[in-house]
Amino acid sequence: MLLSGKTILVTGANRGIGRAIAIKFSNEGARVVLCGRNVVELESLKASIQNDNPLNDAIVLEMDVSKYESIKQAFLTLSKSKIVLDGIVNNAGVMKDAALMMTTEMDVREMFETNTFGTIYCCQFAVKNMLKQRKGSILNLSSIVGLNGSSGQSVYSASKSAILGFTKSLSKEMGTFNIRVNAMSPGFIETDMTAGKSDEYYERNLLNIPLKRFGSVEDISNLAVFMMSDNSSYITGQIIGIDGGMII
């Protein structure tokens, strides 16, 4: 198994991509630290993981990445339990589609506080934790929209684009400690965040994907496993597209 002996924290683990990543990590032998706002869903996920992997001592931590104090308390809990992280996947995110003129101040704040500031603060605390063993892997979730932009998603795009510069810079800062920092930029991935869109929306997007299918959470979790594993030990500062060749 690729992640045996590793402890990896996943934010937004209660559903969608985060949940798939957590399950995949567990199946690859990692002890997963399941973080999110909905503790009931996280406990249910933990039970499911332990049903499949009885020896997995998964941990549930309540964490609202949009709130600095919440992140701080979660990491303090880890520290007091002497849990040292081998990796973190900053997955938690929100997407609120709207033309700029129709985007409320509250939505701007929510997207930046969750997608951008949450990632930054989680990295800040994770790095302090990882410094103890002078190694680690950080994987931030950006988006193809953060790379290329998308009409009706200017603020979401901005919040995800910021992660790219942050990732590249942090990788340079942390290289000396053998802490790798990378980002992935998913294209159109079928999750509950993309559910409920019109058929026209799906058809229009499919036309722009050379591989002629939408991505799945399994596609994302497979890449996340690789990025957390020692097989990617010489990869840092990279933005890895996982989009079927999508053009936007």
Partner: peptide, 18 residues
């Protein structure tokens, strides 16, 4: 500046603080 980061990590770990 590099070892300062390590120092902070060591102090936090040693005293169980953030």
């Amino acid at each position: 500046s590099i070892s300062h980061m390590v120092l902070i990590s060591e102090l936090e770990s040693m005293f169980d603080i953030s």
